[in-house]
Structure formats: C-alpha cells, structure tokens
C-alpha cells in the first residue's frame, strides 16, 4: 500500500487505473490498489507517518554512507561531548562513540526487529484465531483458553522469561516478543471470523463444495488481514518499546551493538549531567513509534471494510 503498483507507462494510466470496467485481472487488482493509495494520500497525518518511516528506512539502508564515524570506535579522550561539538552532531556517549552514527546503525536493528515480529506474530494469531472461529466447538474452546493463558501474563515479564530461557540476543528477543504478541491478533481474527462465517458468501462457497481449508485461507483471511494490518501498525510502537525495554534491561541486543533501548540504558547513568546520551536515542524511539501510530490510523481509514461499505 506504500507504492504505486506498476502503472502502464502510456499517458492515460490514471484513467486506466480509475476505470469502472477493468478489462483484465491485473487491471482490476491495480485499480483496487490505486483507489486505496488515493484514500491514504488524502490523509495528511498518515502521509506524514509514512514519510517519517521512509526516511528511517533510507537512513537504515544508507547508514554506512551517512555515518560520520564508525559506530563502534571508542575515543575516551572525546567522551560525553555535548551535541554540536566538532565532528559529533549529536555528541558522544560515555565511551566517546558518535551518537549520530550509532543512531543510524541502530535504525537497522530496530527495523529488523519490527519486520520480524510483524511477520511472525500476526501470522500465528491469524492462523489460530481463524481456525478457532471457523471450527467452533471444542477446537474453539481449547485454542481460546490457550490464548487466554498467554494473555494473562504481563507481556514484558513473559518476554523476559523467554529470553532468560533462550539466551540474550536480538533473534531471541524477536522470538520472545512474537510469542507474547500473538494472542491479541488471535482474538481479533476470531472475532472477525465469527461475523464472516455465517454470511451468505461463505454459505454460497460451501454450496460449491469448498472445504474448510479453502474457505479459511481464500475467503476468511482476505477479510481479516486488513484489521490485522491496522492492529500491527498500531502495535509497532509497543513492539519497539518492548524491544527497547529488553535492551534497556540488558536482555535484548548486547553491547556494543547500537540498539536504541540499550543506548538509553547506557545513558541512564549520566542522565542528570549529560542529558543527550539517553535523550537522543529516546527521541528516535519516540519518532518511529509516532510514525507507526499515525500510519496505522490512516490505514484504518483506508482498509476498514466497515467504513468503505458500498
């Protein structure tokens, strides 16, 4: 939904995309995407969020080009320099490392965590929730009580337990966050499935002899995915904060890797005299969380099938 799906290069591509009577499967799909893009573009705040995210993604991609220093090189002679010092835009931390460069490389870690969690957790929730909702009966009871057990634990504590069991590190942090983040998605997917499963279009496809696997994957999933995408973008902030929290507690990314939560944690010791060490990575966490929230709000307006009923 972030970019135009290859419109034809001929001059009338806008008309081609906005037609009421598409002439091929590809055109119908492209037209549907384009209509969504137009709706998203109309939402100023969502576009602002999208721009901030694109900026962060570019920063992460081109970190080696943009960085002014090596993020791991220590220079004890230049430790705790304030922002704006010669050669150090955002100052240096307690070991004399350039905060600006570490921030750029840290964006890679944060986006990596977000991308992995955003793939694993909603998919797990979608599968469990739609099976529970569509099958009903004892399958539903068993799967939902299992979900309740996961929901009953405080998320960070459960993630901590997983990391403690699996060992510290980014991959295990991702796994732990995913395993604690799926229950809300399962709940949403189940609720959506319950409203969808008794609709006439599901009855109609059952009357064609379609089995439960086909109905769930081809007919129920496409309608659940939009609400999950919205929920994921709104949860991204929480995921980043949990990752940062694990980093802050020393159980996520390990030093010297420039994870933003770990950077805040290091800066904690100097927060009264050298505010920038903790504040600047904190601002980065704030910016990415806010961007995801704004984008999520915009996506809700675009994707919610209840809003665009016609």
């Amino acid at each position: 939904m972030t970019e135009l799906p290859n419109p034809q290069p001929k001059p009338g591509w806008r008309e081609w995309l906005l037609t009421d009577a598409p002439a091929s499967r590809g055109q119908a799909r492209a037209a549907a995407w384009y209509a969504g893009w137009l709706a998203l573009r109309g939402n100023t705040l969502a576009m602002f969020g999208l721009l901030v995210l694109l900026f962060l993604i570019l920063c992460a991609l081109f970190a080696p080009l943009l960085a002014s220093q090596d993020p791991f090189v220590q220079d004890l002679g230049a430790r705790l320099l304030p922002p704006g010092s010669e050669g150090y835009i955002f100052g240096t931390d307690s070991l004399g490392r350039d905060i600006y460069s570490r921030l750029l490389y840290g964006a890679r870690i944060s986006l990596y965590i977000v991308a992995l969690v955003a793939l694993v957790a909603p998919l797990l929730g979608l599968i469990i929730g739609t099976i529970a909702g569509y099958a009903g009966g004892w399958v539903d009871v068993v799967l939902m009580r299992f979900t309740d057990i996961f929901l009953a634990f405080p998320r960070l504590i459960l993630a901590l337990a997983f990391v403690a069991a699996l060992g510290a590190g980014i991959e295990n942090a991702v796994l732990a966050i995913s395993l604690t983040a799926w229950p809300p998605y399962a709940r949403i997917a189940r609720a959506e499935t319950l409203t969808i499963r008794n609709s006439d279009y599901i009855h109609a496809i059952r009357l064609q002899g379609a089995g439960p696997v086909r109905i769930i994957t081809r007919h129920v999933w496409p309608l659940c995915i939009s609400s999950l995408v919205i929920r994921v973008t709104l949860d991204m902030a929480g995921i980043i904060l949990t990752a940062a929290g694990l980093g802050f507690l020393g159980l996520g990314a390990q030093p010297p890797s420039p994870e933003w939560g770990a950077m805040v944690s290091e800066g904690r010791k100097y927060i009264l005299d050298h505010w920038w060490v903790a504040t600047i990575p904190g601002l980065a966490i704030f910016a990415i969380s806010l961007a995801f929230n704004l984008l999520g709000d915009g996506l809700r307006d675009v994707l919610d099938p209840k809003e665009s009923k016609s």
Binding site: R25, S199, A204, Q208
Partner: peptide
C-alpha cells in the same frame, strides 16, 4: 442443487471480482 440468496449485497465476497467468484466455482 444450487441456491440463490436473498440479499445480493451479502452473497458476494466483497474482495473477489466477478471473474474470481465464477472461476473458483
């Protein structure tokens, strides 16, 4: 045996084109 439902606004999948509805059937 096939069935035609009462409400045509509820009996077609909102995310499927006519082509896909008939093709899948």
């Amino acid at each position: 045996v096939q069935m035609v439902f009462q409400d045509p606004y509820a009996s077609l999948h909102p995310r499927h084109t006519v082509d896909r509805v008939l093709g899948e059937t």
